[in-house]
């Protein structure tokens, strides 16, 4: 399955990417998180949210979207 991944805020700085496409099989959002953290270990200390097809979902949810967004909280004001 092909997924489009988009990184927001600080996650862009830490991955060095605004977006990328990957080919992989995932069952859950949590599985996707584990792979991304393995690929970019700097993300392991950040509690970011994951959205699929523009819906922020919990880690236990099955993957049914192909557009995946990684979203940290923003501090600035």
């Amino acid at each position: 399955m092909e997924y489009k991944l988009r990184y927001f805020g600080q996650l862009q700085d830490l991955t060095g990417k605004a977006e990328e496409t990957i080919n992989h099989k995932f069952k859950t959002i949590g599985g996707l998180r584990a792979l991304i953290v393995e690929r970019y270990p700097k993300l392991s200390n950040i509690n970011f949210k994951i959205a699929q097809n523009n819906f922020i979902d919990k880690d236990s949810s099955p993957i049914n979207g192909t557009l995946i967004d990684f979203l940290p909280p923003f501090s600035g004001g």
Binding site: Q10, N45, I46, N47, K49, I56, P72, P73, F74, S75, G76, G77
Partner: peptide, 17 residues
């Protein structure tokens, strides 16, 4: 949206950014 508050240093702060 964000139930777990970030720890110090987890997210870049106002003065570093």
């Amino acid at each position: 949206l964000f139930p777990i508050a970030p720890k110090i240093g987890e997210i870049q702060n106002c003065t570093d950014l």
